[in-house]
Design a protein around this nucleic acid. Structure first.
Lengths: 216, 216
DNA sequence: TAGATTGTTAATCGATTAACAATC
DNA sequence: TAGATTGTTAATCGATTAACAATC
């Protein structure tokens, strides 16, 4: 039975399912039951069935789930088949690394432009994406209506730039800066806080005594 | 009252507290109550007091929390005052970006070496950190006992390399590759799955109809 | 002192797990 | 058909919120 409200916990598991089904598919697996998938992913079969039931009925009694079909359904739920335009703000080391390594198209995003203020970067092309001057940002947005902006600028520039692109119609921010952005509730913000992530690792290591190390 | 088991939800809020208290401190704020902090961070006062009470009693009735003191207590809980050695595996675009932008020392990590297999990178120095050949990995670990390895290698190399450094005594993995690592339960893995993160943004945008755009 | 705010206990809410009838 | 496995309802567990006595 389709649900009205989907919890954050469920939403965050969807990409994992998507990724894992992809891998199973590439290994030639055709179908899978919730119990097998659960065992493999470290989840309970109940949880998987509950999660999926938020969005519809994708399985078949006695058979399980067809992998290609379920993967495509989840992709649809995640919106990968509705291409949306995305821009990168800041083509420094991190922005550059994303341009080089990350497959935006696979997530359903169209990317053709990054923006920066550095004269050394403006006009260069990375992996088929042109770096333009921030001064062209307004006209680009007016013409292309990007839905998402990636914030890979210095911390100090983040809040102001975020407000600027929101005014230009951007609906979601992928925030790599180490600041808590303050924006209207209608704007979607997904934070990638490296420092926070590493500190959780630090905590776990600090808490757990080191196991006996076999003498080297 | 100190708690035995700390939930994951609490652990993930600690770095946020730490970061926010830092910001308040740098703005010259000396003390704060749980209700004010909650309002600012979008949490309830109850939750903050519950979270902190897992680790001890850091406040004072009628006064609230001293910011410098609380920040230092949380830093201690997170283990930032117990320096631990860290290595970067893979000095490509992403590893390079981390070397350039990320302050490992602030999280209590000592970093002096990255490893790569590319002859073009081996021997170069980035931000004071030397890139060495993977062939030196074993002897480096035997001599320096790094606690954490950052995985910024291609997907295909991740699992094998993870197992290798675990055998060399590494206790935590900061995994930037888009694979689910399979390792012993005693090893701490913190995943930074860019694709998963962006897909949650995609989902939210796909689900919520675009608001009326003021005509441009 | 009086007001403010803590740490903690109790109540509520939501998410996960278990159970099972339906059915492929 | 018989066995397997779904989707869903009910039970359990855990996390968040509310309430309040203690006390600075």
């Amino acid at each position: 039975m389709k649900k009205q409200h989907i919890s954050d916990a469920v939403i965050r598991r969807l990409p994992r399912y998507y990724r894992y089904l992809d891998e199973l598919h590439s290994r030639g697996v055709v179908r899978i039951s919730s119990s097998t998938l659960g065992r493999r992913m470290g989840l309970t079969a109940s949880q998987i069935r509950q999660d999926l039931s938020c969005f519809g009925e994708f399985g078949q009694q006695g058979y399980g789930y067809n992998i290609v079909e379920l993967r495509s359904e989840i992709g649809h739920i995640l919106g990968v088949d509705e291409p949306r335009r995305l821009i990168i703000l800041g083509a420094g080391h991190l922005g550059h690394a994303l341009l080089q390594n990350f497959d935006f198209a696979q997530g359903g995003f169209l990317l053709d432009t990054a923006f920066d203020i550095s004269p050394a970067l403006i006009g260069t092309e990375v992996n088929g994406v042109v770096v333009r001057s921030m001064s062209e940002l307004d006209s680009y947005c007016a013409a292309n209506h990007p839905a998402v902006a990636v914030l890979t600028v210095p911390k100090a520039a983040a809040q102001e730039l975020a407000e600027h692109v929101i005014a230009l119609g951007v609906r979601g921010l992928w925030n790599f800066t180490n600041v808590e952005l303050t924006v209207d509730a209608s704007i979607f913000v997904e934070n990638v806080h490296f420092a926070d992530s590493l500190l959780t690792l630090s905590y776990r290591i600090a808490k757990e005594p080191a196991p006996e190390r076999p003498s080297l």
